[in-house]
Design a protein around this nucleic acid. Structure first.
Lengths: 138, 138
DNA sequence: GGTTGACTTAAACCATGGTTTAAGTCGTAT
DNA sequence: ATACGACTTAAACCATGGTTTAAGTCAACC
């Protein structure tokens, strides 16, 4: 089993060390061992857990939810059903959020189209103006 | 032009009145008129703006960004190009976020599958145990 | 004409999710 | 042996995005 220091984990996952300490304190990263000097040693398992924590964060699960999930992981197989329920619910929440974002994207696209067209007509008006000025000057 | 009171807007968009007041204070809802008694009157235009603000919030644009956008809207056609750029950038950010979420969803699906299978095997083990006990009792 | 109910304000308060600071301990390279 | 860099802790601090509170105004109904 290979262990990583906090700086290695920080570099690997691109997460500040302060955040990793904060996650430990909040119970998101449980049972981290220490070396003789008291420095954290992250096991493979913990890094795998960190990976899923990052996925849960990327899908906006609040820290408290992740905390609950991690507690259940630590508790072991007796919590499998609760974890299954949690992940199923979370999946639905994420799907709902994604579709909300997609609806918003459409509205944003409408804006983009409108602004593009406005740019074009403003451009045309400028040209017309130049031509008109040209005629008047001839 | 029809105007709405704050309670009507709150009900229509399902946003607390306190939040609408906060948005006004932060400059997200500019130029709101008042009746003789000092109560807010939301115009059609402002409600259209509120709708796009909600879309921008749903796609996680920070209040400061929305503020900037609204300032440009108020400023008028001379800011069309900047608004176009902003919306194009924001669209890319949203697409990136959605794809991050979709990657996470796959990891969540893996968990769901794993937990389902574990439930099944735990179930089977229980049945085996029952059968074994049955045989021993015969 | 007094009590409701809907609104107003400024300012204090809150939750979330970290980040920063200060003071101190190791282990190693010079 | 000492200086340096990497780490430790607890506690204070911060940004974001609201929400709540307290004190007051107004219009309308009874």
């Amino acid at each position: 089993m290979k262990y990583c220091s906090i700086s290695e984990v920080s570099a690997k996952f691109n997460i500040p060390e302060s955040t990793l300490r904060y996650y430990e304190k909040k119970g998101l990263l449980p049972l981290i061992e220490r070396d003789e000097a008291g420095r954290r040693l992250f096991s493979e398992n913990q890094m795998t857990l960190l990976e899923i924590i990052i996925y849960l964060k990327n899908t906006h699960m609040p820290v408290k939810g992740i905390q609950q999930y991690v507690n259940w992981v630590v508790e072991g197989d007796s919590t499998t059903e609760r974890r299954l329920e949690m992940m199923k619910n979370h999946k639905q929440a994420v799907l709902a959020e994604i579709s909300l974002m997609k609806v918003a994207l459409k509205a944003i696209d409408v804006k983009i189209t409108r602004y593009k067209n406005r740019m074009i007509s403003m451009n045309n008006e400028m040209k017309d103006q130049l031509i008109k000025n040209g005629e008047e000057e001839v």
